[in-house]
Structures are given as C-alpha cells and as structure tokens.
Amino acid sequence: MNERPETLRSGYRGYIGSRPVLGSRIPQHVQNLVIRDYAARSGLTFKLSATEYAMPHCYMMLEQVLAELPGLDGMIAYTLFMLPERRGRRQEIYRRILDTGACLHTAVEGLVLASEADIGRLEDIWSVQQALTHMAPVRF
C-alpha cells in the first residue's frame, strides 16, 4: 500500500448509480441522502457524487473515481452491490483502492474496506448474495 501524506488528500467521493441494484430502483437523490447522512455520522468529508451510467455492466464512472483516488481519502458507494458482479473485477477494484492508500465505504451496509483483511468480509457477503440471487424467490 502506498502511504501518502494526509495533506494531499481531501474528502470522500460519493458513487451512486442509475441502474437497479438487486432488482430495486433507488432514486438518485435518495442515494445521495443516504451517502450524505453516512458521511456526516462517520465524520467523513463528502464530495459530490459521481453517477454511474445506465448501460448494463458499464463502470466508466467508477473507473473515473478510482483514477481520482490518489487525491482523495476514499470513496463512499451507495451500496456494496453496485460493484461489478464479476469477482475478478471486484478484486481488481479492491486492489486499486488499497494500493492508493484510500478506502471504500458502502453507505447502506456501513462496511469499510481499509485493509487487506476487510476483503474477505465483503466477499463473503457478495458471494452469498450472488448464490441467493440464483435461488427461486420466496413470497412471505
């Protein structure tokens, strides 16, 4: 991990989406409200969110935020489940975040990726969720 002087970093970039997440559409202003509230409660400086494009499997805005990370303390995604579905692609994103000395917060879940040790926790949740997605839905 590259250690960078704190003075060169400023704030946490929000990351919201314009596609449904796990089958649910969340209005963008609601996503921003959740991120702002999370940042305020966690004492993080919030910077205006980047909005991912609507095309399926497109992560161009995420790429832009990742490129910006050397100048940021980190990013706050609305939810963990906005990250790419492909495990290898997620692993690459975790690696890039950690390598720049930044961290990833997910506002809905309140999860943090700040070190290597956090990857397993995030991936356990992701992989179980993916397995559940393949199961028949149950109505209560």
Partner: peptide, 25 residues
C-alpha cells in the same frame, strides 16, 4: 430466504463452511 432485513446491511455470514466457500468460488 431474506425479507426486508437484508444481507450486508443487516445480516452477515458468520459460520460459512468450506464446502459452501468452495461452491461459492
């Protein structure tokens, strides 16, 4: 099955066993 208390935001796996990890991978 999960209802409104979702995986990640409310629940977290604590005792995943090797066969499940292998299957998930």
């Amino acid at each position: 099955p999960y209802a409104d208390k979702k995986l990640g935001e409310f629940f977290e796996p604590i005792t995943l066993r090797p066969a499940s990890r292998i299957g998930l991978d």
